[in-house]
Design a binder for these strands. Structure first.
Lengths: 161, 161
DNA sequence: CTTGACTCCGTACTTGGGTACGGAGCTTAT
DNA sequence: ATAAGCTCCGTACCCAAGTACGGAGTCAAG
């Protein structure tokens, strides 16, 4: 079961050997105990764990947060686990919302950019204007007259402290 | 129109003065030219721009990427702009997918964690097992018999080079 | 016309997330 | 039994994104 060496894990997970060791220091990955004075062996579980870390990272979790997530596994009580998970969930949903708004704006941008003619500016320009005091600044002209666009700037202000 | 000093902008945008100056150095924010030997003045546009940067950052864009986004505004040709936007859009959609998967898993986790009885493990444990060779490892037992869960690890492997 | 608060600007430090390096110890192939 | 090519471990270095610092200039109030 525990057949790989550290470089096997690294390769399988697409990361540097040093990264594995770094994660071990950070407590994200256990060091399998080594046959006294010998060389540690690893299994698929380690690979999966590294992949998990990288995936979570790409989404914007920090290593500390990921460590928390991973502790849901490592012996934390279920109640506690649930609390952490609920926090993360709120977090994730916040990010989702923001991302969706960005997505919408980008879609508009691409669309409009493709089909516009004789218009003053790219929609993003408008999106970058000041938060519209009496709408003098938004140059987005929606063909269908709808007016909910230009909200790239309206992503939630919830900055982490 | 350009009424604030730098600290006004900082305060309005909820960041440090130094951050403003840092952004100026990085080209994310123009320095308004100063009345020879005097003090620069700023308007709402700058505040908006900073807020935009912070928002984009929270979502996982780097400052370099944000600079690109902002160049959609600053005189880049529309074609080019569109290309950038399309890239970002793909990017954003990737992130969205991953996030949605995470969300689903967390929801399950919270749900299950609340309602389970006599079960072996928290669902996350299962999610952390090796990529399921002949499903010996997934202990998620879905009451309704559906079996799509446990995919926290299946977030797309697309690691940025 | 000086004092206090602020700006400007350069340089240095910090933190997070790694990478690289180097000496010593295994292991395996020859 | 020795050389190649690992591992192990510590320490040092790197980059991104700030934050802090300090001297000099500016400006408004008293």
């Amino acid at each position: 079961m525990q057949t790989m060496t550290i470089s096997g894990v690294a390769q399988a997970a697409g990361v540097n050997v040093e990264t594995i060791r770094f994660y071990q220091r950070r407590g994200l990955l256990a060091e399998p105990d080594k046959p006294l004075g010998g060389i540690r062996r690893y299994g698929e579980a380690e690979v999966a764990r590294v992949l998990f870390v990288k995936a979570a990272q790409r989404i914007g979790f920090t290593l500390d947060e990921i460590a928390q997530l991973l502790q849901l596994d490592d012996g934390t009580q279920c109640k506690e686990a649930r609390a952490i998970a609920e926090n993360k969930l709120a977090d994730v949903r916040q990010r989702l919302q923001d991302l969706q708004r960005i997505e919408a704006v980008l879609v508009q941008l691409v669309d409009r950019c493709a089909s516009r003619r004789g218009q003053v500016n790219c929609p993003l320009i408008a999106a970058l204007q000041p938060p519209v005091p009496s709408r003098t600044t938004c140059h987005c002209e929606h063909p269908e007259g709808n007016d909910e666009g230009c909200d790239l700037l309206r992503v939630s202000g919830h900055l982490k402290p």
